[in-house]
Design a binder for these strands. Structure first.
Lengths: 198, 198
DNA sequence: TTCGAAACGGAACGGTTCGTTCCGTTAGTT
DNA sequence: AACTAACGGAACGAACCGTTCCGTTTCGAA
């Protein structure tokens, strides 16, 4: 909304990255994602809004995947933490609710959808998704399951399966645009995932 | 592989759809998906390979989503059936294995990835995915869980959660390009999903 | 038998995006 | 003072989009 047309002729500050340019580009990408989603997102338009040159953008974010990841992670850290109350079911319910809310109310949901979509058409984007994003983003979640296994809440042999099931569930809801708070479904999912047996 | 360059000047057969044109377009779309995946897939190229006119393609498949669904469903029916041995865990293992193999060894995996990607950028594509595809494709799977609930293998209240978990799991593996036969993981997932408790 | 309607392939359209390449300017580094 | 690297701007060739014309072919109804 703001800063959509400003920033003309912001010049070099020497032989190093200009933080103002970086901020302007990320802000423009964020707003564009909010307004138009993945379709209608173009580097040209980001450059136009940011008052930046396309070569500048391509220099710092060689692919769209890199840019989407940057937009996502700009918010994520300040947004919320993984709960740990010693009860896996309760933690999963709380985490799911917070995650969906975060996806709904920040550009990150759109950015993640765009990132996944991009990864279906580009090997480089798929690699970036897996290596630069999932590898780090899934770590706290895996720790949650590992601690539950250490407590004996779930079998250690079922950690990988539960993690994949849970992540896939969230993706599925995100990608089908069904992030409304369905407390019953979330609770039921947490019950299936967050208990022993199997 | 065949019919990649033939079919010049295939003309109208009157005021109705030409089955040869339909077949040629679907075949060209299939091959193009196999060769280049979602990126590098264009209506122009499909028309070129099929020896068809773009207006003809747009007449019968107004959006790419429609075309992807058509490519997918052209194979699916003849490919495999949902097992029903009276044991949910065993059925899930068999179905998962067959599904992943189908996704790996036919154009349908690529077509489905493309369909999901397309749905992230277009409301029309998302609607087509949910209404023309998922609504019908998920029905046999839901029936599997319902029958298991009727037998008492799983609680009836957990059907929706298990279905969403299981579908999400398959999507997650497909979208991350991890469809290798991981027997241990599949068995563990079936164990979590296919039993009572929770 | 005549004639309208609809599908066909082909060509071209204006518009958009892509990723890259130049350019002249600015400012740190040595 | 000379070198280096980032900056914005403009332009590029190529590709794809979705649509619009055109002339041809054939069905089906009058």
């Amino acid at each position: 909304m703001a800063a959509a047309k400003a920033a003309p002729h912001r010049t070099s500050i020497g032989a190093r990255r200009n933080p103002q340019t970086e901020a302007a580009v990320l802000q423009a990408a964020r707003n564009l994602l909010i307004e138009k989603g993945y379709a209608g997102f173009s580097i040209d338009e980001v450059a136009r809004r940011a008052g930046a040159g396309k070569p500048t953008i391509y220099r710092w974010w060689p692919t769209k995947a890199d840019l989407f990841i940057a937009v996502y992670t700009a918010d994520k850290d300040a947004a919320f933490v993984v709960p740990d109350t010693g009860n896996l079911r309760r933690d999963l319910v709380a985490y799911t609710s917070a995650l969906w809310s975060f996806w709904r109310n920040s550009p990150s949901g759109r950015a993640f959808r765009a990132l996944i979509a991009e990864a279906q058409g580009s090997e480089a984007a798929l690699a970036a998704l897996k290596e630069k994003f999932l590898a780090t983003r899934l770590a706290p979640l895996r720790r949650l399951f590992e601690q539950a296994a250490a407590r004996g809440d779930i079998p250690a042999a079922g950690i990988a399966a539960r993690l994949a099931l849970y992540v896939g569930f969230n993706w599925y809801r995100l990608l089908t645009g069904e992030l409304d708070e369905d407390a019953g479904l979330i609770a039921a999912v947490a019950a299936v995932i967050g208990t022993d047996k199997g």
